Computed example of a mutant assay.
Amino acid sequence: MIAFPRKSQPVVRESSVPGGVGAASEWSWRLLVIAALAGLVIYLVIVFHEIVVPLLVALLVAALLQPSVAALVRHHWPRWAAIALCLVLFAAIIAGLVLLVVWQVRAGLPQLEHESVAAYDRARQALRQPPWNVSDREFDSWIRSAGAFAQKDSSALIGGALRVGTTTGHVLAGALIAIFATIFMLIDGGGIWRWITRLFPRSGRPAIQAGGEAGWSTLTAFVRVQILVAAVNGVGIGLVAFFLGLPLAIPIGVIVLLFSFIPVVGAIVSGIIAVGIALVFAGPIQAVIMLAGVLLVHLLEAHVMQPLLVGGAVKVHPLAVVVGVAAGTGLAGVPGALFAVPFLAVANAMITAMLHSHDRPAPIDEHGETETAPHHESEVTEPPGGD
């Protein structure tokens, strides 16, 4: 007998095979769409950076102040009074730091000039001695080369900052945008988020809501922790500089505080600055002591403060932090370095929450209806950090 093939057997399609060619093609066009959207977003951010950067600054400030405003409102403060008090205290702290640095610099400038000349003479005299035997001509050539290198790198480093506001008018306009955006985010953050949520189809709103809640929680945790970490770093390294008798100990602490808002990279740069000042103005022994103080403060941050304060709220791998800061610096200079890590943390939290949003029950509005079957278009769940 001749055996004929069984034509009734089902034919397995490639697209239904997990990991097959069909699945690969489906994922390919999805990734291409995502990459195109990401490129469009980056292009729009670069074009409208004078608006985007102040809005991002306002978002960080609102994330910092919103828990305090909410706490005052829970204690029966009027919302406008709570917002005004938090904004005034925040502005007073910033102005106090600026005035403190200006006062310290003006008071210590004569000593700094005297010690700078003395340190320069000591370094030149030491290099003339064996085993260095550096001639004056070689030393002057090194100084000129170092100045040209510093000028080249500094222009690349602050290029992003100059792109944010190349004139005083741009800086003032950005500051006004940031101030007004912060005020409106604190006043009606819930309304803003409800408007954003309505832009998406109703079937996708639960996922958007879950991602927004996770992203806002991550952002508030990140800002709170970075403020505390920066304060501890600035105070700790500033005290080490003060006890070593270094000039401008308070400005050193403020520099460390500001650089600490750029995770990992900021700590390295500020530590190098502090150790370099100790080496130039005090000597190698004091520089070693300053290095030990910097390492002690950062070890305290990494092994005590970060685990206790952050916990599992901000889940970003250190390698992702370094790569993100480097990429942000290359794309947007100083603003890119500042916003790279919060962007990565928030994006990671939002994507994870949106992927697992199907495990959450559908939210219920004030009428007892779920979001999947609302009676009115305006029925949208509360935003993260809302009213």
Rank of each mutant, 00 (worst) to 15 (best):
A3F: 12
F4Q: 09
R6L: 05
V12G: 00
S15W: 05
S16L: 02
S16Q: 06
V17E: 11
S25Y: 09
L32G: 15
A38R: 02
L44S: 13
L44C: 13
V45A: 12
V45I: 10
I46P: 00
V47I: 11
V53E: 11
L55K: 00
V61R: 08
P67S: 06
V69M: 08
R79S: 11
R79Y: 09
A82G: 15
A84R: 14
L85A: 15
L89H: 12
F90W: 15
F90I: 08
A92R: 14
A95K: 10
G96F: 14
L97T: 03
L97G: 14
V98Y: 08
L100P: 00
V117K: 05
V117T: 09
Y120C: 00
D121G: 00
R124D: 12
R124P: 02
A126K: 05
P131G: 06
V134H: 03
D140G: 11
D140A: 13
D140W: 05
S141P: 02
G147F: 15
A150H: 15
A150N: 15
S154W: 15
A156G: 15
A161H: 10
L172V: 14
L172G: 14
F180K: 05
I183S: 02
F184W: 04
M185T: 01
I187M: 09
D188R: 05
I192S: 02
W195D: 04
W195T: 05
T197H: 08
F200D: 10
G215D: 08
F222T: 11
R224C: 13
V225C: 13
N233Y: 03
G234S: 07
V240C: 04
V240P: 04
A241K: 01
F242N: 03
L244C: 01
G245V: 00
L246M: 07
P251T: 00
L258D: 04
L258M: 11
V264M: 11
I273Y: 03
L279Y: 07
F281R: 00
A282G: 11
G283R: 03
G293T: 07
V294M: 06
L295Q: 08
V297D: 07
Q306Y: 02
P307S: 06
L308C: 02
A320L: 08
G324K: 08
A327H: 10
A332K: 08
V334E: 12
G336M: 07
G336W: 09
A337S: 12
L338I: 14
F343V: 07
L344G: 04
L344F: 04
A347N: 07
N348V: 01
A349R: 07
A349Q: 11
A362V: 12
A362E: 13
A362F: 06
T370K: 04
T370W: 01
T372Q: 03
T372A: 03
T381H: 10
